[in-house]
Design a protein around this nucleic acid. Structure first.
Length: 502
RNA sequence: GCGGGAAUAGCUCAGCUGGUAGAGCGCAACCUUGCCAAGGUUGAUGUCGCGGGUUCGAGUCCCGUUUCCCGCUCCA
């Protein structure tokens, strides 16, 4: 019994903890404000992390905008507050919460009923009907929700209803402490971060930190279209930070309050929406696979039609199987004309597109691809981490795609004498102009290889005795650990080909 | 949000029934090196997460708090 407890304690280092530990040890990710005790769910990217993150964004940017039909944009994080009224975020981006005044427990209204048994719910509903027995409109509404719950719990639908929710709530006892009549009114917890513009903190100066980059694209639709002379179908891409005041943060970089998105909004004729939705769905999945992510760890999660967000007609998540389960790393949505139509309505400005060929004027449909840069970062890190046994020793290696690897080439003199360091330094200064390289002459060469393996460096160059006579060096491959000899004057071309073009 | 666990050196952890902090790895310097993390010598680093309390005395006991992990829940 005691033995197993001790064993358990030692083995509690979960997969995520392992990643967090490696991330800190090697300088990928540190906890935010660590010396002050940390700030929940906020993380800083260290020297290797910032390279990996930049590389992910760079590869995405090239894949998405180095094509004829997509333009780039970098819109402001702060936008006119009406933008978020139009988008529906101020109204809908909320989770209703109730507190128990007695025991201080807090519940999400829509999950409260899960902890209440069926008999009590039935009785509460019967009481509720009795309360409204003289009001046929309300009664019909109650019956309607009970009969036609779609795939939600009908009890929840009633709890969230503006007319009867409050009455029903006060018929329930707190699942935590069992007391009756102790709930506060349901309060909406808005996930928007709010701040103020200018010196006066009043309601007129409220602005929000954007919860998604998409709206900056929508409101610039005609600016971009006109200035770039694009014709539909075409897209606008943007990489940037977004902020959501999540109730709980969790799972390292997976759910944080500040995160980075890589979004592209593709504007199409309404009639073509299906075609482009399918196209981008496939295209985005291929992107992850092309960067070496394991296929068996990726899947689509199509959203059930009744579970769609207020703006969407079709939606799928591209999910990665993290140590804690499947999690969304990108969403592909058909947002229809919802956003542009709403911005027309709220701004009073036309956002219609005029099609020269058909002489038609219309509000385009939008196919959105929205990838999490931070989540992708974590997925690439998790996916590339291998711990394998080599000749009885553990080898930790990040099999990152060369385009993503923070350091591209490690450069070593086999020993620190006979002119080897000088040659190695010359190679370093030549390659450094083109690639992120790392020079290391500390310790045994095997150790240096392993250090680079752990950082995900795809190639290591070693200057050895043969170099002195024939001007060749060894190039060692991270994954196979095999070496080939390359002439120093061919090195640059060889490596650039392998790393940037492959 | 609920329940559980954890927090001691850069990392992984030990530290018994309270008595002024340890190991391994890593790191740095020098020597040694001739291709896959174990050569030698020397060295640096801790207000034991933070704040209170009990005590002559707290890493250790108590309370609060912060953060992370696990499970459930949730994820427009």
């Amino acid at each position: 019994m005691e033995e197993s407890t001790i064993k358990n304690k030692k083995n509690t280092l979960g997969e995520v903890e392992k990643i967090v530990s490696l991330a800190k040890r090697r300088g990928f990710v540190f906890q935010s404000s660590e010396i002050y005790g940390g700030l929940n769910g906020c993380w800083d990217y260290g020297p290797l992390g910032v390279e990996l993150l930049r590389n992910i964004k760079e590869v995405w940017w090239k894949a998405m905008t180095y094509r004829e039909d997509v333009e780039g944009l970098d819109a402001s994080i702060l936008m006119h507050s009406r933008v978020w009224e139009a988008s529906g975020h101020v109204e809908n981006f909320t989770d209703p919460m109730v507190d128990c005044k007695q025991c201080k427990a807090r519940f999400r209204l829509d999950v409260l009923s899960d902890s209440i048994n069926e008999k009590k719910k039935d009785k509460a509903i019967a009481d509720l009907k009795n309360d409204f027995k003289d009001n046929t409109v309300i009664l019909e509404k109650i019956e309607g929700k009970l009969k036609n719950p779609e795939d939600d719990d009908p009890f929840n639908l009633l709890l969230e209803d503006v007319d009867v929710g409050k009455t029903l709530l006060f018929k329930l006892n707190c699942p935590q402490c069992g007391n009756a009549n102790t709930f506060t009114d349901a309060r909406k917890f808005n996930l928007m971060f709010k701040t103020f513009v200018g010196p006066v903190e009043d309601t007129g100066s409220v602005v929000y930190l954007r919860p998604e980059t998409a709206q900056g694209i929508f409101v610039n639709f005609l600016n971009v279209q006109g200035s770039s002379r694009q014709k539909i179908p075409f897209g606008i891409a943007q990489v940037g930070k977004a902020f959501r005041n999540e109730i709980n943060t969790k799972n390292f970089l997976f759910r944080t309050r500040e995160f980075e998105q890589m979004e592209m909004q593709f504007f199409v004729k309404p009639i073509d929406d299906k075609k482009w939705y399918e196209y981008w769905k496939q295209e985005r999945m291929n992107w992850f696979i092309s960067l070496g992510m394991r296929k068996e760890k990726l899947r689509y999660h199509d959203h059930h039609p009744t579970k769609l967000a207020h703006y969407a007609k079709d939606a799928t998540d591209i999910e990665y199987e993290f140590p804690f389960g499947w999690g969304e790393i990108e969403g592909v949505h058909n947002r229809t004309d919802f956003d542009l139509a709403r911005h027309e309505e709220f701004s009073g400005k036309s956002l219609k597109y005029y099609d020269e060929e058909t002489k038609e004027k219309f509000v385009p449909y939008i196919i959105e691809t929205s990838a999490g840069a931070s989540r992708s970062f974590m997925a690439f890190l998790v996916d590339s981490l291998y711990e394998e046994e080599v000749k009885g020793e553990m080898r930790t290696v990040l099999r990152l795609h060369p385009k993503l690897a923070p350091i591209k080439v490690g450069i070593f003199p086999l020993v620190n004498k006979d002119g080897m360091p000088e040659i190695a330094r010359n190679i370093e200064s030549d390659l450094r102009k083109h690639l992120k390289v790392f020079y290391d002459d500390k310790g045994a060469v095997g150790r240096r290889y392993r250090r680079q393996d752990e950082a995900g460096t795809p190639y290591c160059i070693t200057v050895d005795t043969d170099t002195l006579s024939d001007q060749t060096v060894t190039v060692r491959d991270r994954d196979s650990m095999e070496q080939i000899r390359i002439s120093i004057d061919k090195l640059r071309e060889y490596l650039i080909n392998k790393i940037l073009i492959s």
